[in-house]
Design a protein around this nucleic acid. Structure first.
Lengths: 203, 203
DNA sequence: ACCCACAAATGAACACTGTTCAATATAAAA
DNA sequence: TTTTATATTGAACAGTGTTCATTTGTGGGT
């Protein structure tokens, strides 16, 4: 088969990302295969290289999509949230990961080879997540806080990330940790408290 | 070539782990190859399967070795440490990872396939690291603390791990974070302070 | 309606991977 | 010395990522 017109370039791009994301969710990073993605999309390997340049390009695009899905997930939860938005955020962070462990892990398992970098667009898309956290942190600290809110937010994301990573990866299971979300939330509250935050739930 | 007696079973085991660890450190998890490990050890692929059952078995053994090296690294730093042992611990945690990023990342990139589990020995070896942290945390909290020190220690390890993971993986670089160690240490101090710890350095 | 130039899709080829297992060469036992 | 047991090999298999010459449908120009 030669040239086709079943999809425009951007449709094809979206299709490959969608099918690739589904495969990644099902089998995980270690068993991910470009040929399989192409087959599921009704194309062959070469097409992935036409569209993304390399398999790493496709994986980067899939992971950026996952970041966007994740940001949407957090926003939806925050809308439903009552007074304790920090708890809602931490819980949602974990829930997204625990409901699709393969997909979430792949974000951190995939490393671009040296020489390749994320596009500016990818970076901007992925930064949205941190932005959401930053807004919530700022809302909860005193208006005149001397803290570097952006930096503190990144650090709190890292804190929650560490707990989530151990929870999804099984490190915590080996250590008989039963409630990683509660631990993560406790650490976040302690750090926020050190910057003038009062805990709404009393925990 | 048939049966040999160049090495005893346990010598061969150690040799393959050593050569494998070196390869992993050089090329990273994604480019790791069983055939290459065997070649460097002066054997062929099949031998890895005789000794470790599978490539995952070898990788698990290498990663356990890395955990033990890491624990030794922390202990050596703690011996040299002056008054601020918490800072020494956090700094050493990062330094070990940053000096051998491929090797450190591989601990978390490798996942045992379903059905396979770590041996009891591997689990015990890997738990030594957490034990070291637990000792230091206990030493720094009030003797009559009501806190669950084991659980808090695990959580603080997760906190530092999250920061270290972003530092090694480049997520922090994308966000212009310049001093992840300082951030991690600040979070750890805030949480310890919430449990009765007084900061020796005044930071 | 025709033709043609272009671009998109293909799939064979290459060098690799993990895994299995019959054959083999050697060490240990009899 | 002969026999038994086993450690080591390497060919075979099915898969991988990547490249690229070849093919073929498509859109634009006549």
């Amino acid at each position: 088969m030669g040239r086709r017109s079943d999809h425009t370039r951007s449709e094809l791009r979206a299709l490959l990302i969608r099918k690739g994301q589904r495969l990644l969710r099902e089998v995980g990073f270690a068993r991910f295969s470009g040929r399989e993605v192409a087959k599921r999309a009704g194309y062959t390997v070469g097409t992935i290289y036409n569209v993304f340049g390399s398999l790493d390009g496709l994986l980067a695009a899939i992971n950026t999509k996952t970041f966007l899905d994740w940001a949407g997930f957090l926003r939806a939860r925050l809308e439903r949230a009552e007074d304790d938005r920090i708890a809602a955020l931490v819980t949602a962070y974990f829930d997204f990961a625990l409901e699709r462990p393969h997909l979430w892990s792949a974000i951190y398992e995939h490393r671009l080879p040296e020489g390749l970098d994320l596009s500016e667009q990818d970076r901007a898309d992925r930064a949205i997540l941190t932005g959401i956290v930053e807004d919530e942190v700022r809302a909860v600290l005193p208006p005149d806080t001397p803290a570097d809110v952006a930096r503190l937010s990144r650090s709190l994301v890292a804190t929650v990330h560490g707990h989530c990573s151990f929870a999804v990866g099984g490190s915590f299971a080996l250590l008989d940790e039963t409630d990683p979300v509660a631990s993560a939330l406790a650490r976040v509250r302690e750090s926020l408290a050190a910057h003038g935050y009062r805990n709404p739930s009393g925990n």
